[in-house]
């Protein structure tokens, strides 16, 4: 067996363990400690100075109070719509932008740029563009004879409108991820398929789609987690309104925090955490298992 002192000597001299230390301290203190603390504080009525243990009351509220339940449902709907649209549109745009199309560089830039722009700025701009009477979108629709909907002021529509803006801002990211995946597919496959008599549509379904699977996994995982956590866009556009119709867990966390219900706000954090764990872990396991089969 190896002599422990000599082993320690070689390790210490090359890749020092203390290189982990600065990152570990910052991450441990500012991320891990609060995360563990949240497990306790979510079970309390809490004012920052004093906390009173109240068991699962906060969590019961989340599944009983209609506006909190709605927030929970909204969160899942929002994440599913945005990630679904980003996958579909991202892949189509990527196929388009890797084909021999004119002004390809310009198109790629234009699609990607919104990713880098301030979310709040985007939210404000689209709030104005989506104004029911004066907004440019409805004015344009009117020109072609369509009576545009009340995008953000109709309670049954607001969440979906925000979701559309989220897709507008985020689809560029999905697109560049897909482009990276597509250009990694060897050209030989397409040429071999063509010689075998495959049409472009068939090539898409039998080559592009299966071989861009890793990109799909990345896009779905990223945008689904991002969707579940979304706060800034919703806050900039609707503040969760009208009523509670576009609230998500993240906006509820903020509202409860502002209202001084710290225990309930923290319970929201835990709910969001559990929701992500319950949805994302099986999702990635499913996606990766399928990948292993192929």
């Amino acid at each position: 067996m190896a002599n422990p002192t000599s082993r320690a000597y070689a390790r210490r001299s090359t890749y020092p363990g203390w290189f982990f230390l600065p990152a570990a301290i910052i991450y441990g203190v500012l991320f891990l400690v609060p995360t563990f603390a949240s497990l306790y504080f979510s079970l309390t009525r809490w004012s920052l100075f004093s906390s009173e243990f109240i068991g699962l009351t906060n969590f019961y509220q989340f599944f009983e109070e209609p506006f909190l339940v709605q927030g929970l449902v909204n969160t899942v709907i929002f994440a599913m719509i945005t990630s679904g649209l980003k996958v579909v549109l991202g892949l189509l745009l990527a196929v388009l932008l890797t084909s021999r199309i004119a002004l390809r560089g310009y198109l790629r830039s234009v699609v990607f740029f919104p990713v880098l722009v301030s979310t709040v700025g985007v939210g404000i701009t689209f709030t104005v563009l989506m104004h029911p009477t004066q907004g440019a979108i409805n004015v344009a629709l009117e020109l072609v004879g369509i009576d545009g909907p009340h995008w953000l002021t109709n309670p049954s529509l607001a969440l979906y409108s925000v979701a559309l803006v989220d897709v507008w801002k985020g689809v560029g990211l999905a697109t560049v991820i897909y482009i990276a995946g597509l250009v990694a597919i060897p050209k030989d496959y397409y040429e071999a398929a063509r010689i075998d008599g495959s049409t472009p549509t068939q090539s898409f379904f039998y080559i592009t789609l299966p071989l861009s699977r890793p990109a799909t996994v990345t896009v779905i995982t990223l945008s689904f987690i991002g969707g579940l956590k979304t706060f800034d866009l919703i806050w900039a556009m609707t503040r969760g309104g009208p009523g509670f119709s576009s609230d998500t867990i993240a906006s509820i966390i903020y509202k409860q925090y502002q209202a001084g219900f710290y225990g309930l706000s923290t319970a929201g954090n835990v709910v969001l955490f559990v929701l992500i764990a319950l949805l994302v872990v099986p999702l990635t396991m499913y996606l990766n298992r399928r990948e292993g089969h192929e």
Binding site: V29, L48, Y262, S265, I276
Partner: peptide
């Protein structure tokens, strides 16, 4: 921990309390 950090939303109020 790295994967957890990418997935888990930060616990806001406990962080404020700690800060």
């Amino acid at each position: 921990l790295i994967l957890a950090g990418l997935m888990i939303p930060p616990a806001i109020v406990p962080t404020i309390w700690l800060l």
